[in-house]
Amino acid sequence: MSAKVEEQVREEHPLEKILRMDRIPHIWCPTCGLGTTVTALSSALEQLQLDTNKVAVVSGIGCTGRVAGYMKLDSFHTTHGRAVPFAVGLHIARPDLKTIVFSGDGDLISIGGNHFIHTARRNVDMTIICVNNFIYAMTGGQVAPTTPLTAKAATTPYGNAEHPFNLPLLAASSGAVYVARWTALHVRRLTVAIKEAIQKPGFSFVEVIAPCSTLYARINKLGTGLDLMKFYHDNSVIRHGADLNDVDIDFQSKIVVGKFVDIEKPTYIDCLNAGNKRAFGDKYKPYGGGNGDN
């Protein structure tokens, strides 16, 4: 093939330098919101001009868990629900890396729920991007702890009888220092939120409401992912700093989005250094990113 033809054939998408192109096209369904969320993360990393050797992405299992495999960064695809504990270990061993956990609601909140609240309590410096599609999508649409009351799932054909988690309230009450929620449609605001979350020292949590066309929308007869995007367009209410008791999502209700929490708190390594310095005085050399004074 001559160089000229090759040049014509090879068109390069601007995100190709941050994606593992040998694995693209990805396995996500048409009109799934995950690709858009990956674009938001990639453009956030690009805008922050971070050294890609200093960023690590950790995912669990599920549709969203595939993200770690698609990003050309240090990435790890952990077992189900264990993305957060792996990321805690990674952060403590290498505090110089920006640790990003990119996983789904079933992985982070259901199976990894205990890890999630305790890491938030310790305020370990990491960014959690939780893509909430209201269902266990990869395994066939079973009910998840985020499925709204009365919504149908493969295991609740007559409607879900359980109250769902209110994720921003859960994260904030467990101790997260940054909590935001956006939908996959709010790409620019989502990119800004991810940028702020990455820069924030401490446990930052970004919930992304994403359409699942093949399971959630099909079982509940909501149309395609495009129809869900239109629903988000018409029914999202931006309310920064909203009272977190009011932001739970009912079936096809208004979705309150925005930046809810942005506070300062010493991180886990800061507290560890401060505690050891109190105990051992000058003999103690501060560990990692914190300088041991705070």
């Binding site: 998408h13 858009t36 674009t39 990119t191």
Partner: peptide, 13 residues
């Protein structure tokens, strides 16, 4: 760039 940001398949820029 909205099409580029919204495209889930990295297919338009």
């Amino acid at each position: 760039d909205l099409c580029e940001l919204l495209c889930p398949d990295f297919a338009i820029y």
